[in-house]
């Protein structure tokens, strides 16, 4: 047998170029966008981070959590505690909150991973409720009624109001880019190969040497890290925290699931598209009061019936375009004009 010459192709250059262009344009936004627009975009970025992380858990790893608000709230409370009691600069408190979230996710995962499927989902929610009740016991942070971020802490972000808005805007953009970058890197690494294998057949993955539990553990920890940072950032935007707002299943899980599902579960681009659609709907429909929530429900149902793989999923299947293809293609050298077989798996299109 003669060994064939070959090389591996990954693709995604065009997508990376587009993403870079978008990142540069957004980073320059303070130069041309209004203060209100910047505030809105910062919220969108935080939601893109949350939805991308939920997608990593549910869409790529089969960990359908409805309790990620545990880490949003934890991150928010870490921000308040670290800045108010330890004098940590607010922007530095964001990554620290991430570290605390990741550390706490280890014992939480040890408990939750005893549960599977729907039981895991319910268990994660219960855990978030426990977090909420614990937060309401912290009298130094206002107990059940919550607390506002003191002026001296707010001033520590930056001296002028405009500089603060810019700083928080850039921090939000950086977080969304960091989270998406981290997820792309993870999914394209050998861990990502294991995750995708687990996604299609857990027993076969295990029979082929993949330590399923360990892979899920790592993913859960990473998601806790990112979600806690997003939580810290969100409550730096809001400047006020209370247990009900911080651990809201509606704001931090239901909306996030909505975004991911209409955008496309199990695709990197899905949550980004979903978050943009969600905010577009909110801007156009929020005057309608409670009718707005009904409309969101109608959109979700229509999306599930008409585009079960989400808006991006439908688009990607039509056009074959993906920003960050996950697959590896084998290309044989010295073959006489023969293309290397047809398109492969998810993220494998030419």
């Amino acid at each position: 047998m003669i060994a064939r010459g070959f090389h591996i192709e990954r693709g995604g250059r065009a997508g990376a170029a587009w993403a870079l262009a978008a990142a540069v344009a957004l980073a320059a936004a303070p130069a041309y966008a209004s203060s209100a627009t910047l505030g809105l975009l910062a919220q969108v970025f935080a939601y893109i981070a949350l939805a991308s992380l939920w997608n990593l858990l549910a869409g790529f790893s089969g960990l359908v959590s409805v309790g990620q608000q545990a880490y949003v709230g934890l991150g928010g409370y870490c921000l308040f505690a670290l800045t108010m009691f330890a004098g940590v600069p607010p922007l530095l408190a964001i990554p620290l909150a991430g570290v605390v979230g990741a550390a706490l996710s280890i014992p939480v995962a040890a408990l939750l991973f005893r549960l599977r499927g729907a039981y895991f989902a319910i268990g994660s929610w219960v855990m978030a409720e426990v977090f909420r009740l614990l937060a309401s016991q912290i009298s130094a942070l206002g107990g059940g009624s919550g607390a506002s971020l003191p002026i001296r802490v707010v001033a520590a972000v930056a001296a002028s109001r405009q500089a603060r808005e810019f700083a928080i805007y850039w921090a939000s953009l950086a977080l969304a880019l960091l989270v998406i970058g981290l997820i792309v890197w993870l999914l394209r690494s050998r861990w990502g190969l294991a995750l995708r294998a687990i996604h299609f057949d857990e027993a076969a993955a295990s029979a082929n040497g993949v330590d399923v539990r360990r892979v899920k553990f790592v993913v859960y920890g990473l998601a806790a890290f990112g979600t806690s940072m997003a939580g810290a950032l969100i409550f730096l935007q809001k400047l006020r925290i209370s247990p009900d707002a911080a651990f809201s299943v509606n704001d931090w899980t239901a909306y996030v699931i909505f975004m991911t599902v209409i955008g496309g579960v199990g695709r990197i681009e899905g949550p980004v598209v979903g978050a943009i659609v969600f905010f577009a709907l909110r801007l156009t429909l929020s005057d309608l009061g409670s009718l707005y929530l009904l409309m969101l429900g109608v959109v979700a149902i229509a999306a599930m019936l008409k585009a079960p793989k989400g808006l991006w999923g439908a688009f990607a299947e039509k056009t074959g375009f993906e920003f960050a293809p996950l697959g590896q293609r084998v290309v044989y050298d010295n073959q006489t004009g023969k293309p290397a077989a047809a398109a492969g798996g998810q993220g494998d299109k030419p």
């Binding site: 050998r190 190969l193 294991a194 995708r196 294998a197 996604h199 299609f200 057949d201 076969a204 993955a205 082929n208 040497g209 993949v210 330590d211 697959g327 590896q328 293609r329 084998v330 492969g344 798996g345 998810q346 494998d348």
Partner: peptide
């Protein structure tokens, strides 16, 4: 692993 390519199926076993 239905959504992975044939090559990637082997890579899972070779890597892990």
């Amino acid at each position: 692993f239905g959504g992975l390519s044939v090559f990637e199926n082997l890579m899972v076993a070779a890597e892990f």
